[in-house]
Design a protein around this nucleic acid. Structure first.
Lengths: 124, 124
DNA sequence: ATTAGTGTTATAGTGACTTAAGACACCGCA
DNA sequence: TGCGGTGTCTTAAGTCACTATAACACTAAT
């Protein structure tokens, strides 16, 4: 049943960068790691890292400055947050609930289970 | 931000069949639709439907009977449920919580939001 | 100017997935 | 026996994500 479900690598990298912007790791105007650094960090080809950047350029999350680097665009965080909220509420949440109900679970079960698991992890 | 995220077709079909077994659409011993019927239903090549079946054969969800069809194996439902529960708790739930927290949401927010949306849908 | 760091483009090759069309093996039934 | 329904296998082609190299264009610092 572990039919691995991987998205494309360059998409995962782009989402990871968005995560980092959301969580404040990079703020607007900051330079993100260079294509080559990113490729090394994720153990991936330069072209793959570049494609992640192209994606984020198209969505006006990153600005390309030749010879300098890629910087976080103005309003990037707000735009990511907005898009993520929409995606989350319209797709992820319904799919999550569907799978939950197929397993005969409720949100209360989940909350209980999560508190238990979370306690385990932080206790280690 | 809509970096389409598709899994392989044959995997989606296999998971869909598992959903149908979980929800009681097919019970143990039942014949599932033939390769060609399934291919037609999902508007997909026969080989793609066949690969979905191969996946489910390997996990002992379906039994192949040449000249007859594919039937749901004994214990298939229990096995699916068990694997799904494990996958859900170990991977989907943590990822869901991570994304939720990145958006500054809590499980209570989700529960509230879901009840509202659910009410909208069932009212239509 | 030189150098080292950026982003960018191009070409070629690999592997996974999908489609397409056809052929074969098996079962049940008339 | 023949027919039509099953599952299965083969071959060929095409797309896409990824890798591997290499080269080019620009900027900043020395």
């Amino acid at each position: 049943m572990i039919y691995h479900n991987e998205k494309a690598l360059f998409i995962k990298i782009a989402e990871r960068l968005c995560d980092d912007i959301l969580s404040g790791c990079y703020t607007e105007g900051d330079l993100v790691p260079s294509v080559r650094e990113l490729a090394a960090e994720y153990e991936v080809n330069i072209n793959t890292a570049l494609r992640a950047f192209e994606l984020l350029q198209r969505d006006a999350i990153l600005l390309s400055q030749r010879g300098i680097g890629m910087s976080v665009a103005k309003g990037a965080r707000r735009r990511i947050l907005s898009a993520r909220r929409k995606e989350f509420l319209q797709h992820e949440l319904p799919e999550f609930m569907r799978r939950m109900e197929l397993l005969g679970l409720t949100l209360d079960d989940i909350a209980r289970e999560w508190r238990a698991q979370d306690g385990m992890e932080t206790a280690s």
